[in-house]
Design a protein around this nucleic acid. Structure first.
Lengths: 222, 222
DNA sequence: AGAAAAATTTAGGTATACCTAAATTTTAGG
DNA sequence: CCTAAAATTTAGGTATACCTAAATTTTTCT
């Protein structure tokens, strides 16, 4: 019979998806670090995921994991829940984009499909969450993302912010205070090759941003 | 240190409160039946609740349990979550009163205090859920309920329905179809001493209701 | 009162999902 | 290329919250 998707399993699948998506490999250590649990715990769980029927991940010892088709579907379901919830907390309860993550993190595992459909419909089936992240469709396809990291831009180039890949409250508040939110139009004023700092203009304000930030903001060139 | 209020513990406390409230004793068997788990599991858990610091229940072997002050506070917190959620699912997502229970049952354990406050405020701090059940206040006091079971009425008496104590989808749908919802004004047309059936008029319709139903509908006399 | 029935508890066991310590495998640097 | 460091896995253990079977206590009924 089918593996029960416990909250813990849902979390693993989601994180594996996110790591893979962002180009990193879903290694035991990467998962352990991201989930704040020990490496042996991760090994145990990925072995379980790999030997479940049907398998949710592809796994070869010492080589990390990739999601199977079933694993990916389950991951996208959780991610859809998470991102719809974030959008909805902002739109209907007045949460700000730095407050939604934690709440969505807990709710994502317990809402019904009916609830998912109701909030999606109530919002007119949005395609992005408050951070600009794409929301998987109801049939669990992830829309193609065309954005580039802000760190790829150089002086004189202009772009529009598409999404901000962070759940760090302080960073999000800082970015919001600068106007660096999805939809904002920016222009690169300077680049420092030594530390990869970018000077970015938004409206009348300018800010110098380190790679730590510029690699988490995704844009499309204008 | 304080006992962590796991989902399981929250469920026990809630059920103990509800059983006690409705006059039944919170015995091992009653809990087991209501929670659909085995009696030995209940014994194990109530022993744990009784010996936690501070104790959440008062317990003497073979005598069932009652909530301590701390246990009652925790129970009321869960019940407040549950009832606010039910109200809110109806008011903002178009759920009907027979659909809300299951969803609220899962959400009640994971919402933050912030979320609780936001939905309460958004609804103008309602004092009743969609079934007419009283919602514990933000400082965790349960308002006093003055209602009587419908089963206590006799022919010629008239009353207003205050609350319907049920989460049974089919029953709730049936009652709604008859107009037997909170706020409805009813009049007793007949009583059968043999089976305790009551004939109840609501608007132009009349229905004959068994004790199973009349003991779960609570009214105030007009 | 005493025996049968019912309720409850004890004893012993399972699955999940963590943990640390130690062993092993892979990777990277001289 | 070979050894030290890093990554990963194995081994063995914990807490939570369930379970069944058997023992015990309480209640009920004649």
């Amino acid at each position: 019979m089918k593996q029960k998707l416990t909250i813990s399993i849902q979390d693993y699948l989601k994180i594996i998806y996110e790591l893979t998506e962002s180009g990193e490999s879903a290694s035991t250590n990467a998962l352990a670090k991201r989930m704040k649990i020990s490496a042996p715990s991760v090994t145990g769980m990925i072995q379980k995921l790999a030997s479940s029927k049907p398998p949710l991940v592809e796994y070869q010892k010492h080589q990390g994991v990739t999601l199977t088709r079933e694993g990916r579907r389950a991951a996208l379901e959780v991610i859809r829940h998470h991102r719809l919830l974030e959008a909805w907390l902002v739109q209907t309860l007045g949460y700000s984009w730095d407050e939604v993550h934690e709440e969505a993190e807990r709710l994502e595992h317990v809402i019904s499909e009916d609830f998912e459909q109701r909030i999606a419909a109530a919002m007119g089936n949005p395609d992005r969450d408050p951070h600009g992240e794409l929301i998987p469709t109801a049939d669990l396809k992830m829309p193609v993302d065309e954005s580039l990291p802000l760190s790829a831009l150089r002086p004189k180039q202009s772009a529009t912010i598409q999404r901000v890949q962070s759940s760090d409250t302080d960073l999000l508040r800082y970015l919001e205070s600068l106007g660096l939110v999805p939809g904002a139009v920016i222009e690169i004023k300077a680049y420092s090759a030594f530390d990869h700092n970018l000077t970015v203009r938004v409206g009348r304000k300018s800010a110098v941003l380190g790679l730590n930030i510029t690699s988490r903001i995704f844009i499309e060139k204008n």
